[in-house]
């Protein structure tokens, strides 16, 4: 436990020095502001682009447009940025030989993986949470309508998906000695899950629902109970992947 804590401190220092904290903070704050901004500007931008050719009257933007933009940003760019930032988490340290000293002096190997996992997950939760609160504030101010009744419900699946996705990145980074292995593994798994979604029988169990069904959850057209099986698979999957990562890391030459 204390070993994990020591390595946890070292990881935070590294995350700060490598600008990971800065990148995630800036990008997710930008996402938070951009969602309501795009929703608000869309009618004006359409007018500017099309000019007088536009004869139909554009509908006024609603809170739902703002949340649509938010979930598009987080699920299409945000999670991949997360994967990119943590892609070299293990592989970079192995290729640099920076873990050898610590491990030979008695740092248990599982502590390395658990600390790295927790640091990444905390960064994900804070990044998404902060971004969500910013969008929530602006959206409530600019679009005080009743089109998004379940705003607070729809964000939980995204956070849960992060638990699963970080575990995938860490496993890739442990198995393959390349800085981009974590990212590529995560991208492949994501693509695989997207393909799997075409199979109707497994759709409810597919963790990808956690980042694709959010707008329906916000609008209230889908109940959270519908994706509970997918939530379960994501959490169990994260734990299994973490176990496999520790197992693989125990057998790895540092």
């Amino acid at each position: 436990m204390s070993a994990t804590l020591t390595f946890w401190h070292k990881e935070w220092l590294a995350a700060w020095r490598n600008y990971h904290v800065l990148i995630l903070a800036v990008v997710f704050v930008i996402f938070g502001i951009e969602a309501p901004l795009m929703a608000k500007l869309m009618p004006d931008l359409m007018k500017l682009a099309l000019g007088d050719q536009l004869s139909i009257k554009l509908p006024q933007p609603t809170s739902s447009d703002s949340w649509q933009q938010f979930y598009k940003n987080t699920s299409q760019i945000g999670i991949f940025l997360l994967a990119l930032v943590f892609s070299g988490a293990v592989s970079q340290e192995v290729s640099g030989g920076t873990l050898v000293n610590l491990v030979t002096k008695g740092l248990p190997r599982y502590a390395v993986i658990i600390a790295k996992y927790l640091v990444a997950v905390v960064q994900w939760v804070v990044a998404i949470g902060g971004s969500f609160l910013i969008t929530w504030g602006y959206t409530a101010y600019y679009f005080p309508d009743d089109k998004s009744p379940h705003v607070w419900l729809a964000i939980w699946p995204v956070l849960l998906f992060g638990l699963f996705f970080v575990a995938v990145v860490l496993l890739g980074s442990t198995l393959i000695n390349s800085n981009y292995a974590g990212f590529l593994t995560a991208a492949l798994v994501f693509a695989g899950l997207a393909l799997l979604n075409y199979v109707k029988a497994v759709k409810r169990w597919n963790p990808i629902a956690l980042v694709t069904d959010n707008l329906d959850l916000v609008r209230g057209t889908e109940k959270i109970t519908h994706i509970l099986p997918a939530c379960g698979v994501a959490v169990v999957g994260a734990l299994v992947l973490l176990g496999v990562t520790i197992w693989a890391f125990n057998r790895k030459r540092l």
């Binding site: 800036v26 704050v29 502001i33 951009e34 309501p36 608000k40 500007l41 602006y138």
Partner: peptide
């Protein structure tokens, strides 16, 4: 467009 949405644009510009 810019001046009507200053509360949204200013933090974006500062961040970037």
């Amino acid at each position: 467009l810019f001046f009507n949405n200053l509360p949204l644009f200013v933090p974006l510009i500062v961040l970037e």
